[in-house]
Design a protein around this nucleic acid. Structure first.
Lengths: 341, 341
DNA sequence: ATAAAAACTTTACGCGCGTTAAATTTAATG
DNA sequence: CATTAAATTTAACGCGCGTAAAGTTTTTAT
């Protein structure tokens, strides 16, 4: 089988002129069906692919899409990234995946290198508090960007995420309905803006239900939430400073640490008779099913968040990179009842 | 500040000729220090970056490196990918990360799209049994590739991974020394070749120590190991077909499922007096620290596997993409004693 | 059948940079 | 200061493809 060097050669072999072949690769539907058939026939015989670099050099708009998540070692982001990737591919784009690994420096570097990729658009889940706001603002001014998961005021052309109020109200109401109203367990300085919204929602819901909110703030920085949660829970349990027999964690990864601490101290968690503590949480982390006991939690609407994010990005790209006004789309949570509460 | 369009313009502004500027970007040390200083000064003032696509169009060897892992939702691979990424960046390369998400079709597509990226080299952790061997073989013939984590006979220029024998012998010996010799718990048709090596090592070590091996094979396919492990453990526990009070799982993700099943059934796991089962495993998964009880396991030498992988790839690239002969490098495990055994 | 529209071919230029060869400048050496 | 070696400049070509203009063929509509 002959090795094809370039489109010229391939065009000759397929019996179609190069400009038409070029047009075909840009959009197969833009050529006559008979022409298309001939090209695709040749494609089967010769296995030619246009040179990516040459293609993108002259196109104002590449077919690249950048996907940036704050922390890929968190399976939650790995899952959502997977969905985003595949949606992009299905729509004929080339996604590239990046993780900021929790570091501002890295997030900035990624945005920098993304810029030179000249992407058609970017799906960005920012670090949050740790983000370099001005860097992100500048980036969004140059590149059509849709924010997801973690909102930064006014940045990007749109935001798609989960409705933290829905998360917390469902978990709080459930716990209140079936037992004592929960305390709220969170990091003192959370990395993610969702955490702040959840705290506010907790206070709000508790007051609405006529209970006094009780917030437990634990120390620790970084993205090792499980360890932070465990240390914090140990301290709380040892000091016996827990005022309630039910706790709502800000997120599942903290809860995983909390459960580990309980297990260490022989505290049985769950709603069975021999249990002294009920624990619920938010996110429905992929591992929440396998904790001991399994974790009652409010689940993200993964599929909708991901689907709407890419849809929005595609709309943005088609509108030339700008929306009339920034929109924020929030999807409600789904309560997942398991053993822990 | 002026917007710079191309290298011509930037060269003019910096007062250096374009070919020299080009040389600088290829290797800053290849120009005279005074020249370098002038370029870098201009770089500060004007913030210009060469167009990636134009750069790579004419270079036989790009500065791209592909990193492919079988399943990114497994934090183990996310962690190792992070290390690999950063090593590549430090060496002046541009890594791009891909996950096969456990699917052969996707792995093939990744290799295809990687080909058109014309990477200087690729770090590939293949799916294993599910891989399309001939596709990978062809790919490795065209692109300098180093395999890691999961070995495929004769493929790639080198393999770097962990010594499964070291893993299993340490866990088996420890369990034997401190209690009953363990049964071995694994999937009937494991996705990963390491699993086979571990089974063989188990049999080998048991016989060497004078014990009869006992292997429990459970059903299930795919990459949802935790769920497979739980289902399998449930069955074993319900049928009371466990012949020993100690079990060695082929990998941590299965063990996580096993522990969940034990918890459900009220079986206490650990080496304390009230425990009826000891469970150990292999991999030292990022979550192994947070299971209940925490998991005794054999840890990969993450850092060395990752470091050696990139080192080897760089050597490969410098040798022009071919080694005299294929090498296999295996790093021993480190036993991590926790609560489960 | 004829006119108009649509698709295709031919020709040719440009993108931004790699790269090479010859001419020139600068630095290093004795 | 003269001699060499090394670095830089100038000039020019090519990479593979996008794309535009003008001419030709095919399809669709009347």
């Amino acid at each position: 089988m002959t090795k094809i060097k370039n489109m010229e050669e391939f065009a000759a072999l397929s019996g179609i002129s190069r400009p038409t072949v070029s047009k075909y690769f840009h959009d197969p539907d833009s050529v006559r069906p008979t022409t298309r058939a001939r090209i695709e026939e040749a494609l089967e015989r010769f296995d030619y692919r246009p040179n990516i670099y040459a293609i993108n050099q002259n196109r104002k708009l590449t077919k690249n899409i950048g996907i940036v998540v704050p922390y890929l070692a968190d399976p939650f982001f790995a899952e959502i990234a997977r969905y985003l990737e595949q949606s992009c591919i299905a729509a004929g784009y080339r996604p590239s995946l990046f993780s900021s690994h929790g570091e501002q420096k890295l997030e900035n570097e990624i945005l920098d290198s993304l810029r030179s990729l000249k992407p058609a658009g970017v799906l960005l889940a920012p670090l949050g508090r740790a983000s370099d706001q001005s860097a992100i603002e500048k980036f969004c001014a140059d590149v059509p960007t849709v924010l997801f998961d973690s909102n930064l005021d006014g940045m990007g052309a749109a935001f798609i995420g989960s409705d933290n109020f829905s998360f917390v109200s469902q978990t709080v109401e459930y716990m209140t309905r079936t037992g004592e109203p929960p305390s709220f367990f969170e990091m003192r300085t959370p990395a993610n803006p969702n955490a702040n919204k959840r705290r506010i929602a907790y206070v709000d819901v508790m007051e609405r239900l006529g209970f006094e909110p009780h917030i437990i703030k634990i120390d620790g920085t970084g993205w090792a939430f499980e360890e932070i949660g465990r240390q914090g829970a140990r301290k709380v349990l040892e000091e016996r400073s827990l005022r309630t027999d039910s706790v709502l964690c800000s997120n599942d990864r903290l809860a995983i640490g909390f459960l580990a601490a309980c297990y260490e101290q022989g505290i049985r968690v769950g709603r069975k008779e021999d249990c002294t503590l009920r624990l619920a949480s938010n996110d429905d982390h992929p591992f929440a099913k396998f904790t001991c006991p399994s974790l009652t939690t409010a689940a993200h609407d993964y599929d909708n968040v991901a689907a709407r994010s890419v849809e929005t990005l595609f709309e943005l790209i088609e509108s030339g990179g700008k929306f009339e006004k920034r929109t924020e789309t929030l999807f409600p949570a789904r309560l997942v009842l398991r053993e822990s509460a």
